[in-house]
């Protein structure tokens, strides 16, 4: 049971933190249409986070709520992967982060929709349509920028250099993932294969032999998460129990 709670929180934290990161673009997107697109994705992800937090709160049955799980836990309790907490950087870095995560999420949810826990399976199945669009949208941006101008190509190269080191962790199961039934080998294979296809079209190299950072899934984060939570949790910390 404890493993299922931790895993559900991991899924929730992934989507909450990436949703929060994408939301930072709200009002700052390069053009209005893309501003709306990235914040739509942000809302999709936060919606997924709510479903998972609600379920985790039910499983915990200790008075936790979706709000207390999102707003009142500290860095070490958060189980999101390192990739999603990385800074937005420029538009290229945000697009690459979204692409890498959506790609992972797409193949993960395909497996999760057949999960033995019917609630997790239902959330995954419902979310899969959203994720499919996120993947399509972010793939096109990776291709557009990678195969665009010299400037945009170089920015994508820089983004790959920045983010690739956080992709290894996604495919290395931690303790609470070992009983999930997820086939990590085929997950990695499918994910990498899709990345290769898109990078190839984008004229971008797939890095080899990069040292991979790990730790996010067990609560050991990069320095960025603390800042994200400070902003995300500010109102609940300053005015406990406040409501809209």
């Amino acid at each position: 049971m404890s493993a299922l709670i931790d895993y559900t929180l991991h899924l929730a934290d992934n989507t909450l933190i990436l949703g929060q990161r994408n939301a930072e673009w709200c009002g700052h997107g390069p053009v209005l249409e893309q501003d709306i697109a990235i914040t739509n994705i942000s809302l999709d992800l936060i919606g997924q986070a709510r479903s998972f937090y609600q379920y985790a709160a039910e499983l915990k049955a200790d008075g936790s709520t979706e709000d207390s799980l999102a707003y009142l836990r500290t860095e070490r309790d958060f189980k999101n992967c390192l990739l999603v907490e990385q800074p937005n950087g420029d538009w290229a870095q945000t697009m690459l982060r979204q692409f890498l995560f959506s790609c992972y999420q797409f193949f993960l949810y395909q497996q999760l929709q057949h999960h033995t826990d019917t609630r997790v399976a239902a959330i995954a199945e419902k979310s899969l349509k959203e994720v499919r669009y996120h993947l399509r949208w972010s793939s096109e941006w990776v291709i557009r920028l990678g195969d665009g101008t010299e400037e945009s190509h170089n920015r994508m190269l820089k983004a790959i250099d920045e983010l690739w080191r956080y992709t290894g962790e996604l495919f290395i199961p931690v303790a609470y993932e070992t009983e999930t039934g997820i086939k990590f080998t085929s997950l990695k294979e499918a994910g990498l294969n899709n990345i290769r296809i898109v990078f190839n079209e984008a004229t971008l190299p797939v890095p080899e032999n990069v040292y991979m950072q790990t730790g996010g899934k067990t609560g050991v984060h990069t320095e960025h998460l603390g800042f994200i939570l400070t902003e995300l949790q500010y109102v609940q910390r300053a005015y406990p129990g406040s409501e809209w």
Binding site: V31, L32, E33, Q34, I36, A37, N40, E140, R144
Partner: peptide
Amino acid sequence: SLHAADAQMAIENARDV
């Protein structure tokens, strides 16, 4: 109406807007 670099992007922008 909206701005987009190509038809595909126009469809997606329209979907989001």
